[in-house]
């Protein structure tokens, strides 16, 4: 704790965060969050964050490690529910619907808001079964043919089908890292979610696999609303339309990606982008 406050003093002795700089409201918001606070037991991880995810756009959440961007992302499909000491306050809406409402079923929410994780995590099943997992548990296909169709189209959308079409029965864990991550994306879109959350999806991959994933993300935004957490500013610049900069659990600045990277308003954002810390 003392270390943290020390850094805060160092970086914000002359720079204070007073609310968020820039435009947090989107005209056509798929999800909109207002005054979100997240606590781990007594420790506050997210402080009063408000932002919108614009429909069919990629929103990038950037910031130094430990700034709370992943925590915030995990609130959006209530993955934080699995941590008993975690408490979320504020208004989080998906299409005008409170996702933390008592009567809202997290199972349904997570079917609508899918998630791709930092480390590729294919299930120890065949490639086919990995993609068919979601449709099966949610009862999306009534027969084998329908299921086949969902699996194939998902693999195609994830740009993986041509590479694996001959070995759909071999285990998903046998693929390369990049292929595994695309399999995980295929697995997510097989459920036809409305929003896809990506938590540093390319951080465990080599540059070539990363490029493929980035291309994929760009294509996917046609159909889905995407939020991506990344520690790579270049990646944020390449794939996103909107960028939000987090610092010490607060949203410092949000705006169009070009503007954030070329002409940041807040000094903290500028320092981060120019590589003074991070």
């Amino acid at each position: 704790m003392s270390d943290l406050s020390f850094t805060e003093n160092l970086t914000s002795s002359d720079i204070t965060i007073e609310g968020t700089v820039g435009k947090v409201v989107a005209e056509d918001a798929k999800m909109s969050m207002r005054n979100v606070n997240v606590f781990y037991a007594d420790k506050q991880a997210i402080k009063n964050v408000s932002l919108d995810l614009a429909r069919n756009q990629v929103t990038a959440l950037i910031g130094p490690s430990g700034c709370g961007k992943s925590t915030f992302l995990r609130c959006l499909n209530r993955m934080n529910d699995t941590i008993p000491i975690c408490r979320v306050e504020g208004e989080l809406l998906l299409e005008e619907q409170d996702i933390y409402a008592k009567n809202l079923d997290p199972v349904l929410l997570r079917a609508r808001v899918g998630m791709v994780f930092q480390k590729p995590n294919p299930f120890p099943k065949s490639i086919y079964d990995n993609v068919a997992y979601g449709p099966k548990i949610h009862g999306l296909a009534t027969n084998k043919a329908e299921l086949d169709e969902i699996v194939i189209s998902s693999l195609q959308k994830a740009g993986l089908f041509n590479e694996v079409k001959d070995r759909l029965d071999s285990p998903g864990t046998g693929l390369s890292g990049g292929q595994q991550q695309r399999l995980c994306i295929a697995r997510t879109i097989a459920v036809s979610p409305e929003v896809i959350l990506m938590d540093e999806p390319a951080s465990a991959l080599d540059p070539i696999a990363t490029a493929v994933i980035e291309e994929l993300i760009d294509e996917l935004k046609e159909k889905y609303t995407i939020a991506i957490v990344t520690h790579s500013m270049q990646q944020a610049a390449r794939v996103s339309q909107t960028t939000a900069y987090f610092h010490m659990g607060q949203l410092v600045e949000m705006g169009k990606t070009e503007q954030i990277f070329t002409n940041p308003v807040h000094t903290l954002t500028e320092n981060y982008i120019t590589g003074r810390f991070g």
Binding site: N77, M79, T82, P106, V107, L108, L109, R110, A111, G114, M115, F117, K119, N121, P122, F123, P124, K125, Y133, G134, I137, H138, C184, R187, T188, V191
Partner: peptide
């Protein structure tokens, strides 16, 4: 833990996660 999160993140219930992912693994 990532396997469990992956399954839960897709909207599987806990018991589905256990029966279809954790136990086979």
């Amino acid at each position: 833990k990532t396997l469990k999160e992956g399954s839960l993140g897709m909207g599987a219930t806990m018991s589905e996660t256990i029966r279809h992912v954790l136990l086979p693994a």
